[in-house]
């Protein structure tokens, strides 16, 4: 049960130049990557999920090598067994809540049918109390519900690690506190291995995990708070 990351990547956009050089390892079930925006948190997450290919280094989760530049290993995102909750959730606007949740369970070229709902999808809908909005589209539900849909969609395929990109940033402050404790409770109940990135010290405190601070693309402190 461990996460072992060491990646280097030079990112260029126009004449801007950013060097990502992040190394950390942890066997904590809750890892928090903390840092200001532009510190390289999201790029680190993308590299772990396989959406960004580092120039060098490795990514290992629970002993499985997802990426290793020197060994020429680079699993595509779909083979990594990593769940990803995007900052503004990236729910599919053309699909209902139930279709979004069941998305990963359908491997072919067609989206899940509107009416057909498997046992696993029903279980997550019940667990997150999304029954009343299961047939709604994401634009019609509240921020808290959207976050739960995004979580359910990521968890339905039973990933070995869930990556969460600023999971509370899109919520209003009152809801934020509630969703923090909801996420912590869920993590404990399902014994999820999760890695959360945030710029908010209040998130760091609430999540109470192994905190790794990033600044300018590098790890500055790694502490178990």
């Amino acid at each position: 049960m461990s996460v072992d990351v060491s990646i280097r990547k030079v990112l260029r956009s126009g004449d801007r130049h950013f060097e990502l050089d992040v190394t950390f390892a942890s066997n904590h079930r809750r890892i928090v990557l903390f840092g200001h925006s532009g510190a390289g948190k999201s790029q680190t997450l993308r590299a772990m999920a396989g959406l960004l290919t580092p120039d060098a280094g490795h990514v290992r989760v629970d002993g499985a090598t997802l990426f290793d530049a020197s060994a020429g290993v680079n699993l595509p995102p779909r083979e990594r067994g990593v769940g990803y909750v995007f900052q503004d959730y990236a729910l599919f606007p053309h699909l209902t809540v139930a279709q979004n949740i069941g998305f990963a369970l359908e491997g072919g070229w067609l989206n899940p049918r509107r009416r057909a709902r498997g046992e696993r999808v029903r279980r997550w809908i019940d667990m997150f109390e999304l029954g009343p909005v299961a047939e709604s589209h994401p634009s019609r539900i509240s921020g808290g519900q959207r976050q739960r849909v995004a979580l359910a969609r990521a968890l339905v395929a039973e990933p070995r690690l869930v990556l969460l990109d600023e999971p509370f940033a899109a919520l209003d402050p009152a809801l934020r506190a509630r969703m923090r404790s909801e996420l912590c409770a869920l993590q404990a109940r399902l014994d999820l291995q999760m890695l959360v990135i945030t710029h908010d010290p209040a998130d760091v405190e609430a999540l109470d995990g192994h905190t790794i601070e990033l600044r300018d693309g590098r790890v500055v402190t790694t502490a178990r708070l």
Binding site: R46, A49, G50, L51, P76, P77, R78, R80, V82, G83, Y84, F86, D88, A90, F92, P93, F103, A104, G107, R153, A154, A157
Partner: peptide, 10 residues
């Protein structure tokens, strides 16, 4: 990001 989400979802 929606295309990224689909790829991460398998």
């Amino acid at each position: 990001q929606l295309e990224d989400a689909a790829r991460v979802l398998g």
